[in-house]
Each structure stands twice: as structure tokens, then as C-alpha cells.
Computed example of a mutant assay.
Amino acid sequence: NPFVGTGANSTSALDYGIEQIDFAKEGFIGGSVLNAAMYNGQPIRSMKLPAGSPNWGSGWKKAVKEYYGHSMTIASHGSNMSYRDCYLSLDPTYKDDYGQPLLRMTFDWKDNDIRMTQFMKGKIDAISESMNPDVYKSSFKKPGVHYDVKPYQTTHNVGGSPMGTDPKTSAVNPYLQSWDVHNVFVMGASVFPQNIQFNPTVLVGGLTLWAAKAIREQYLKNPGPLVKA
């Protein structure tokens, strides 16, 4: 009964994670978590049907009845490295309703990303085919493809105000405090210099507690930079 289940019901494997990969042998840096998950019971959106199935009407209802609760996904959630030409900036052209520049993202896939996802394709294809499915559809980034915001890829975006020990190469110090304005603390995955394959939520929580402890025990008693530049 998927309709009573959670939307994040899955099993994860770290067989191809950063701790397991021989980077020199495979030709890329950074690993990937493998997630095998069932679809939840969201109407229409979660009704995965084979190609050629009717989009509506009695034929669609018949296909839904046959395949409801009989589909799943196997996906990879991979690492993404930092690059000098991938960054956030203020857009020189577009502005919001208040006349302030909109945030502009400059980003594209790199060869390392493609090699990693193609490696995972080989692993996932083998697992999927061993299950002898009635229908199997795969979608992985191929060489030459460019980043596109339209297809859902993940909402776990990171970066933009990276944490570090040098104000020349980071926006916030190890306590998530702005190097430039000492009473500004940035909490969130934006402080990650890069994505290291895992969903960032738990680490964001840990870093927030770390920063809050420093604010309470150090900053409030003596406001100012917690790390000397």
C-alpha cells in the first residue's frame, strides 16, 4: 500500500562511495551513494507507466491498476567538486521588484562528473537487469551534455558561501561567521565548499549546533571575529 508510506522509503548502499573507489583506476574523483526506492502513492505524479501507455481515460486507469505498487527506482547521488568557473554572482542585467540584482549561477558539468555517473550507470544497469524487470528505463548524463535546471536532479544544492580558514578563498570562517561582517553567521548547505555525495541535511544540523555553541559561549560575551584573518 504505497499510499500509506513515506516518500523517502529507500535502501542505500555505499559500495561505490568515496571510501570504496580507487580513483586512479576508475578515472574520476568522488563517489556516489546508491539508493533503491519504491514510489509513494501520490496520484498521477507517482504513477510510473511503461512507454506507450494511454495518458488518460479507461486505458490509463487499466495501466495504473496493473502497475500500481510494482515500480521502483535505483538512483545515484554523486559527489560534485569545486571549480573556479562554477560560482554565484549578482546578475548584471536582471533585477527583482525592488531593483536589486538577482542571483546568477554559473555552472556546467565537468568531465569528472560524466565519468562518475557513467561508472554508476554500469553498476545500476547490472543490478536492474538482474531483477528481470518487465520495463526498464535509465537516464544518465552523457559526454557533452550541459547542465539543465528543468529535469529534477536533486534539491540538495550546496555552495555559494563556502567555509574555510582563509578569507581569500572562503566567505565564512569555521564557525560559519562572515569574514567581512562579524555579526553575520550563515547556516546552511551554502557553506559547503563542495558536495561529498551525501544529502547535506544532517551535517547542516551539526554545523548549526557548532556555530550556535560558539555564538552563545564566545561571541555574545565578546562580539567580534571568532577567527583572526
Rank of each mutant, 00 (worst) to 15 (best):
G5A: 12
N9Y: 12
N9S: 13
N9R: 06
L14K: 09
Y16W: 13
E19Q: 14
F23Q: 14
K25R: 14
F28I: 00
G31H: 07
A36M: 11
M38H: 13
Y39M: 08
S46H: 10
M47W: 11
A51T: 02
S53H: 07
W60K: 10
K61S: 11
K61R: 14
K61T: 04
K62M: 05
A63K: 05
V64H: 06
K65S: 14
H70E: 08
H77L: 12
D85I: 00
D85Q: 07
C86N: 14
L88W: 12
K95R: 15
Y98F: 09
G99K: 10
M105L: 15
T106M: 05
D108V: 06
K110M: 08
D111G: 06
N112W: 03
N112C: 13
I114S: 08
Q118A: 01
M120I: 00
K121D: 06
G122E: 11
S128E: 04
S128P: 01
P133D: 04
D134H: 12
S138R: 08
H146W: 06
Q153A: 11
H156W: 12
H156R: 09
P162G: 00
P162H: 00
M163H: 04
P167N: 11
K168P: 02
S170P: 05
P174F: 03
L176A: 03
S178N: 09
D180F: 02
H182P: 07
V184H: 13
F192T: 01
N195M: 14
I196C: 11
A214T: 05
A214H: 08
I215S: 03
R216V: 04
L226M: 13
